[in-house]
Nucleic acid binder design. Structure first.
Lengths: 365, 365
DNA sequence: CTGAGTCAGTAAAACGATTTAGTAGATGGG
DNA sequence: CCCATCTACTAAATCGTTTTACTGACTCAG
């Protein structure tokens, strides 16, 4: 219950009282010209070439003087353009979405666009309704971040980490094969032969693709993933708790492993806690690799070795693609898939596997 | 450089081709009625009482059948309402802003509002331009999150962690006196008498107020803060690096301290790293208290003791206040200040001071 | 039978721009 | 001197609603 301290009457305001903005009509009346003329001149229309320089001067000066700004809604209505995009995220504060949105914003604002954010928190009803609400708000395009999207709205859509083959959607994905290769080759080279994997929740768009890539790559490189040593995250909390629980499950199987590949950095952090509580040191006993490289990955102790996704870049790319598609018109062809490359960031949560070939330390239950 | 895989012609789309939405005029023509009638009925205007139930039925059914949605821009233009707010943040992905925006969004979307986000990254020019751009976009109000705001735009503004006395702004602040008391009483009770403090950067709105509160409270409680043991964060990176550097400065003074109060959780994390590198254990040798309670505070190892700000709640409160002020009209009085209460979250980064009264361990350089 | 009051709507203005299609007057070529 | 062209503009339509101010046909009381 917030405390209230002191009210103020608005009319005490001392600064200039921000008078109602002037309309084109008023400005025209003031100059003794028609709104048409002003519009032509101010928008530098080719038809304005017949207006003498003197008149143009007068118009520009008056516009400056009265601080004329075209009314955005009026202009949008007329032009049938809103210069606005919608951005769908699961949750803004999950470390992942915020980074992507950052990249989106940087590009959009530079191009004169703004965007609406809507967080669906994986709720079915919101996943259905928000895209429609955004469309009603006349957004010219949509960016879905780590969000399953299966509608057909008739506007350009980019899906960051989208993998579904939906018409009108450009999927922007990480090269997961390469990601798996980077991580597993590194682990293999450091003597790790038995790997445990924490898969993502079903609702995460990357879950299936990433697991597939890891499975194939492990087979190719001769890294063993015992069937019991691949467990999914459960629940939709964006906290390390889920990784903690998953890791306890892994330990409970009794199957040996020297390295753990977590679905993301947050679950990797939970995993490290679970390992430590079980009396295992990271990285001496078990190496842990995260995914994403969110800010807290480098802050953590030990700092996380992780597969970096260029999240900001993916956001930028999504924004760029959608604007490009808007400019090209709905009939133009568009890319179905854009792929970005991961990078392995080696920090302190990974090390050589204990003893080359020596029997893996039995896990405590 | 992203790879492009496969283009698709849009006309292959198999789903219903999302035909252009119908306008009121078209719907009216189809029913053989005037747009006025439809508008009255669909908006449940009191004037629609004279329209017989049968006609109303027909109208509702046709609206359903043709999936009629009033054009948002047209309606906004007419009503001079945009149902949109602007939100100014320093940076979305700093752990703090995203939480506040979360609270803002939850409230706004429930009330039928959307919002534009703009991140100024502490750049002077953007700080000046973004509010104006938002105003041009016809936002009905503004929320500034941890952002110095000194303009006068003629719309309701709420400043989360704002402390400046600017007309038309409602400041939403934490009870800093209480925050300092919670942290320092706790430390005092655990035998800490010599405190080091990491102050915020100049651009952070809370910096001055928080430091003032800590200084006064320390004096009141008999906790010593040696003048050399209060250093500010430098640079605008939102990473623990800044706290790391600040802590090195603190250690370099040679002055003894058993506890460190950091400006926020991120800098506390950097501080812990610096302490550890200097051969000091946390919490055994030095207790560290953070501020904010962002997600990574609880993930960290050791988990951070910290002063929690109810960030989500502050966002909600900001949104609520602005909508309320919009509803009340510009002439109505409004609160200048709303205060929320902090909470001390005790985790593993704090403990009893080493030895009751025993000389503090000399810091290694 | 008249006037007032309902009923069931409609026409037109407004919101604030942009755009299309003119027009009145000056200039100029033949 | 006549027609065409150019100059410097403007009227009106349009975008899709909402709102204000009507209207014509009935009904009913007196």
């Amino acid at each position: 219950m917030p405390r209230r301290n002191g009210n103020r009457k608005n009319n005490e305001a001392k600064a200039a009282p921000a008078s109602r903005p002037v309309s084109l009509k008023e400005l025209a009346a003031h100059l003794g010209l028609s709104p048409t003329t002003l519009s032509l001149v101010l928008n530098d229309s080719p038809l304005a070439r017949s207006i003498p320089a003197g008149t143009q001067q007068r118009i520009f000066e008056a516009a400056r003087e009265f601080n004329y700004r075209p009314h955005f809604l009026a202009r949008s209505l007329r032009a049938q353009r809103s210069f606005t995009l919608g951005v769908l995220v699961p949750e803004l504060s999950d470390g992942y979405s915020a980074m992507v949105v950052n990249g989106i914003e940087e590009y959009l604002l530079r191009e004169g666009y703004f965007y609406f954010v809507a967080s669906h928190r994986h709720r079915r009803d919101l996943l259905d309704r928000y895209p429609k609400m955004l469309l009603e708000r006349c957004v010219e395009g949509l960016i879905a971040v780590d969000t399953p999207y299966r509608q057909h709205l008739g506007i350009p859509v980019a899906a960051v980490s989208g993998h579904e083959d939906v018409p009108e959607v450009t999927n922007i994905v990480l090269n997961h094969k390469r990601a798996a290769t980077l991580a597993l080759e590194y682990l293999r080279q450091h003597g790790h032969e038995r790997l445990a994997v924490i898969k993502g929740q079903d609702f995460s768009s990357d879950t299936r693709v990433r697991w597939e890539a890891i499975r194939m790559t492990a087979k190719r490189l001769g890294v063993l993933i015992h069937p019991k040593l691949a467990v999914p995250l459960e629940g939709d909390s964006p906290s390390p708790e889920t990784g903690y629980v998953a890791t306890q499950q892994l330990l409970a199987t009794g199957e040996p492993f020297t390295a753990l590949f977590a679905f993301n950095d947050i679950s990797a952090i939970g995993a490290i806690r679970a390992l430590r509580e079980a009396g295992l040191n990271v990285p001496e006993d078990v190496s842990v690799v995260g995914f994403d490289d969110v800010d807290s990955a480098s802050f953590h102790n030990p700092a996380l070795t992780t597969v970096r996704q260029p999240l900001r870049e993916m956001g930028r790319l999504a924004a760029e693609t959608v604007l490009q598609r808007i400019a090209n018109g709905p009939a133009a062809p568009y890319p179905e898939l854009l792929m970005v490359e991961p990078e392995l960031i080696i920090r302190q949560s990974t090390a050589k596997a204990r003893g080359a070939g020596a029997p893996t330390r039995r896990m405590r239950r």
